[in-house]
Design a protein around this nucleic acid. Structure first.
Lengths: 355, 355
DNA sequence: ATGAAAGCGCTAACAT
DNA sequence: ATGTTAGCGCTTTCAT
């Protein structure tokens, strides 16, 4: 027999007062349900968790009691007892980048199917934030972590030390499960495409030194030029943002490039803005190929040639790897290398006429 | 799903065997630290939580012991004991929509400052998923929830019943803190802008019935036409995706609209594709104004006129509201109404000449 | 098949 | 200022 009072606490018939949750409303516990159903807490637990050893009649009673009381198991207590959580943490470096949100979708779909929830954290390309989120993941004892590492930092050491299953995406981490794309090769192919299209003064706009994808894409660019016996190097780095692309391009313009390989779609926005403002026609005056197949690639004129990375599949593969490791921690590290695909469009055709 | 790993256990000197975390590596607990530092667990707790009543010398000993053992407090146990979590859940309807990711950034920044972490969940415009994530939030006893509700559903009833602080964003929820944008007014103004620009056959491409923003924007469109004494209604609904926008537009084209108000930026992509394929010139043949200021708006030719919603500010305001309610649950519900801003660009100028 | 009871790791009274 | 102790709500032996 319970009485709700104004303060959000309720008194049992025996006079004991039970504190309520912060919300102010009393919340039913497993023992409330047990009392209501006239069974032990153990039986409630077994019944609600679908253990086969419980009398169907009791299961029904327990269910009814739980329903009536609006009982929701306390995940904290459950996880504490079980020493495990059905939560995966996904720490990405930019929530506003469609590449990473696609990865998130992939991780989520696979995790969901296996009964895990995914917690998405935005490290914002910032090692401190990354560290903070890793600490949270550690504290909350998540079952595993999918991470796109900001740098080769040792921030993951704590995870390692604690033995938390981890898989890296997009950027490599030594001795770790990972799902990567062969960025260097893709950049090389994209650059070769530019060469093949007849561009002579090919530049590269890439991200900050230390971010592996930025370095790899620059390396791929050089690979292609080397192989073609081209000497001219027009390279510029910037933040992986529109502003970074814009600044890099403005600087590069002094050297009159006639084509640009852009390492990231956020940068591409800045690059295209800068080109437009300089009165340069896309494709005709300056060819552009950018990493990541953004939804608006076909809306610009001429449409943008891109290096499409299989983002969703990266996420899905990472989640599968993570689940496998959670199930079997002693597995040797596995690296999955996915391929990017060049999608040729008008922005790399010198003879393009505006539609 | 659980695997017991014998290899990951360690034996204490006294022969007792302590279970290890799932990862297989033994994890230090507060009593390990206490033993190592030669103090009680209470002192460890106090020292590590910065309680002022602890001897500085002991604090140092404890810190050292914790460091040495690689101790990380178990958040599960802490939260269970404290009956509260420093985690906020943000359930949004589309991670791939920049509008929502901007909201996420806003929520995150404010929460971060207050010492809360944000868990991002993607309901995917799907009531079932939304329900599932709400249940997870309930189970994990998050401190509060920010939600962009899929519909007027009763899925939040459980949250209410449990007393979990909740704030709705983007779409209203009765008797609830909320941060909204006056979509209807914004849609009306956008339509009036179209009328003022000389368009005669103005259509509206909006989202599914039942999604409040979709309905409101349609209503605003009608308001403007009514006020202007226009009879012609060209309305079509579709999913809040590119494909939805494309289909709606293809259908609408039969009625020769000369302008379109598009209720969502994802839809806008499909709309623009359909227009392009039909050989219609943006602005000149068909004026377009779309909701949400996407980063690529200025890259298309002519640049896209948009209704810019203060997404980041919505998220920040929602987080502030939520934190206030967590601190003081008895506050009366507060509704914050933010304004959208029409940004006029070339896509709504009939006389535009391609740059 | 069911119950009693022992914790999971932590914090907060309550002692000292 | 520090230690002792009692739980938070749950699952899971171990009895019965």
């Amino acid at each position: 027999m319970r009485v709700i009072d104004y303060s959000g606490r309720y008194a049992f018939a025996d006079g004991a007062v039970k504190g309520a949750g912060k919300g102010g409303v009393a919340v039913a516990t497993i023992s409330d349900v047990a009392r209501q159903a006239g069974v032990s807490t153990a039986t409630v637990s077994r019944a609600l968790n679908g253990k086969s050893t419980v009398d169907p009649a009791l299961v029904a009673r327990v269910r009814a009691a739980a329903e009536e009381l609006g009982y929701h198991p306390n995940g904290l207590a459950r996880n504490l007892r079980r020493q495990e959580t059905a939560v995966l943490a996904l720490i990405i470096s930019d929530v506003e980048n469609p590449f990473f949100t696609s990865i998130a979708r992939g991780v989520e779909d696979v995790a969901q199917t296996a009964g895990y929830s995914v917690v998405l954290c935005n490290s914002d390309e910032n090692a401190d934030k990354e560290q903070r989120y890793i600490d949270v993941a550690l504290q909350e004892r998540v079952a595993g972590v999918v991470l796109s590492p900001t740098d080769v930092s040792s921030s993951v050491e704590r995870l390692r030390h604690r033995g938390t299953p981890l898989v890296a995406v997009d950027r490599p981490l030594t001795e770790c499960d990972q799902v990567l794309v062969d960025s260097r090769l893709a950049a090389r192919q994209a650059t070769e495409h530019l060469i093949g299209a007849g561009y002579r003064r090919i530049g590269c706009v890439t991200g900050p030194a230390g971010i592996r994808t930025a370095d790899d894409r620059l390396a791929g660019y050089r690979d292609a030029l080397d192989a073609a016996g081209r000497d001219l190097r027009l390279e510029r780095r910037g933040e992986y943002r529109a502003s970074g692309g814009r600044q890099a391009t403005e600087a590069l313009l002094a050297e009159s490039p006639d084509a640009l390989l852009v390492a990231n779609s956020a940068m591409a926005i800045g690059v295209l803005e800068a080109l437009g403002e300089a009165g340069l026609r896309l494709g005709r005056d300056v060819g552009v190929v950018a990493f990541d197949d953004v939804p608006w690639a076909t809306l610009i004129d001429p449409p943008l040639t891109v290096v499409a990375q299989p983002a969703y599949e990266i996420g899905a593969a990472a989640a599968r790897l993570l689940l496998a490791r959670i199930a079997e921690p002693s597995l040797p590290p596995a690296a999955t290398m996915l391929e990017a695909r060049l999608i040729e469009r008008g922005s790399t055709q010198r003879a393009t006429s505006p539609r």
